Simulated scan of single mutants.
Amino acid sequence: MSDVSLEQAIQDLERIVVELEQGDLPLEQALEKFETAVKLSRVSQQKLQQAEQKVSQLLQQQDGETLAPFAAEADNNQASDA
């Protein structure tokens, strides 16, 4: 499953969510879909982390910059707005 692209994993996750929300699946099938969704979620998270690491490496090579965690950046923006 790790050879799935991020875009394909997200599309598959969205499709599974719709199927599960409809509630028409038998329990066994719903559990299988849920298990697949968890795997796709993990693959997506890994791909995003790999992309973040690559961007960070490229920035460091170029200007010596580093990436700030998004949550910290959002917190700083909210503090300056107050």
Rank of each mutant, 00 (worst) to 15 (best):
D75Y: 13
E21I: 06
A71M: 14
K54G: 00
Q53D: 15
F70H: 01
M1T: 02
G64E: 07
Q53M: 10
E35T: 01
V17K: 10
A9G: 10
V43Q: 04
I16T: 01
T66F: 07
S2V: 02
Q60R: 09
E65P: 01
V18E: 13
D63K: 12
L48Y: 03
D63L: 11
Q45S: 09
E65C: 03
Q11P: 05
K33P: 02
V43N: 03
Q78C: 12
Q45Y: 09
E65I: 05
A68F: 09
S41P: 02
K54P: 05
E35Y: 03
G64Y: 07
A30V: 00
K39N: 10
E21F: 00
E7N: 04
K33H: 04
F34P: 00
T36K: 12
K39H: 05
Q60P: 00
A68I: 11
K33S: 04
E28G: 08
A30P: 02
A72Y: 13
L27P: 02
V55H: 04
A68L: 11
K39S: 09
Q61L: 13
D24H: 10
Q61M: 11
E14H: 13
Q49Y: 06
Q50N: 14
I16Q: 00
D81M: 15
A79W: 11
L6C: 05
S56E: 03
T36V: 09
N77Q: 13
L40S: 03
Q57G: 09
L59W: 08
A37T: 04
A82L: 15
L13I: 13
L13T: 07
Q46Y: 12
L6M: 06
A51F: 07
I16C: 00
L13N: 10
E14N: 15
A71I: 12
G64N: 08
D75I: 12
I16K: 01
R42L: 09
E19S: 02
V55Y: 06
Q8A: 14
P69W: 06
V55P: 02
V38Y: 06
V4R: 01
N77M: 14
